[in-house]
Design a protein around this nucleic acid. Structure first.
Lengths: 207, 207
DNA sequence: GTCAGATAGTAGCGTCACGAAACAATATGA
DNA sequence: TCATATTGTTTCGTGACGCTACTATCTGAC
């Protein structure tokens, strides 16, 4: 804890000699550590980490993907666990369930007004704030690398990779003035383009 | 799931028009999602996520930091929880406890031979493999950004930021041929320089 | 139409993660 | 020498999670 500092040498040497580039192992550990810090005790604990994750998901998923099953796939968990989390958020009045328009087994999950307000306390905001403080170039590179890693790891883990419709292989931008999703067979507005979709397929991603 | 694909347009348009740069919110969610995928059900479940985290920590922390207390600080948890995790790994024969040389209250935790062997099944290896597949430039930028974010978030959360001694402000490289730690008042070898330290202070980090 | 199989969601159970609190042992400093 | 801090542990209650079994609904083949 205390710094004895017996000799305040100038410390002007730029780098230790034996630095042979970043160690991937350390990066991976750091990434997991960062994710853990997001939901550490210092954060808002009025919701549990699982509840925050669900609230964020339903706030940013498109209409096709706002179901308990889609959330369970996104979160790499079981439908049972996802069901419990959703139930708890409905009990708190932050989510609500609507009957699905075409499928009698399913439900459409929506944020309530209270749910949208609750997002203001999202513990993830601290990390988002840190990311915003990065230089634009660095932030862009970081985001792109994350997306690339997300795809690669999802492939290894046989998990679906989620993404925004604007980056999706089903997204047809060849029509002038409008964007068409070949998967859902519907036109997309700009809000749709920024939403998470369960049917995301890597395709329009720049390398 | 199925792709109807009514019109196979050339899809040669490079980018959607309304792309106004990466959204920080999406990056943060993706980072948390990546960390979650690491320990998803597809991974080796012979150890729990908490146990893997502890095993990794004691494998990469330096002598000063291989105590239950240091691990609890690193992991942003309580000493009670950390104690449980360590106990379970000792019961599995993957860690062992040695009496601390100067402090009778404390213990030095070491990996056993079985513990070191177990690291070969680390679920984090999949992510590490993905990171290794990045181009060197991209990987270097990614690692550096992660370190920067780790420091910033640790400050916000009042958590200690851990790092390798080579990047630490206590590290004195002004002597020729040897490296001295002003904090522990000891000389460092190259293995020490790559180890996590609880007394890490940002200082030698390149910007 | 009808029936088998797939899929959406739920409930119950056991295990693990975790924080909180109480506690024992040791260190530290006045 | 003694108050105080620190290290590590145990116990307890709650929540997260996977698993299994279950119901309701959809889908497609016949």
């Amino acid at each position: 804890m205390s710094e004895p500092a017996p000799m305040m040498s100038p410390n002007s040497q730029p780098e230790p000699a034996q630095d042979a580039g970043p160690i991937p192992c350390h990066s991976a550990e750091l990434l997991v550590h960062l994710a853990r810090l997001v939901h550490s005790a210092a954060a808002d604990v009025s919701l549990t980490p699982a509840q925050w994750t669900a609230l964020r998901y339903f706030a940013s998923a498109n209409r096709l993907s706002r179901t308990p099953s889609a959330f369970s796939e996104f979160n790499a968990t079981t439908r049972g666990t996802a069901s419990q989390t959703v139930k708890s958020l409905i009990a708190l009045g932050l989510l609500e369930k609507r009957a699905h328009e075409s499928d009698g087994r399913s439900f459409l999950i929506e944020l309530t007004e209270a749910g949208r307000a609750k997002l203001a306390d999202d513990p993830l905001d601290d990390l988002i704030h840190c990311i915003k403080d990065l230089s634009p170039a660095r932030r862009a590179a970081f985001t792109e690398t994350l997306a690339q890693l997300g795809e690669a790891l999802a492939r290894l883990r046989a998990a679906p990779s989620f993404g925004k419709c604007g980056d999706c292989g089903h997204c047809d931008t060849s029509r002038s003035g409008e964007v068409f999703c070949r998967c859902s067979q519907s036109l997309l507005n700009s809000a749709d383009m920024r939403a998470l979709c369960i049917d995301f397929a890597p395709g329009n991603l720049r390398r």
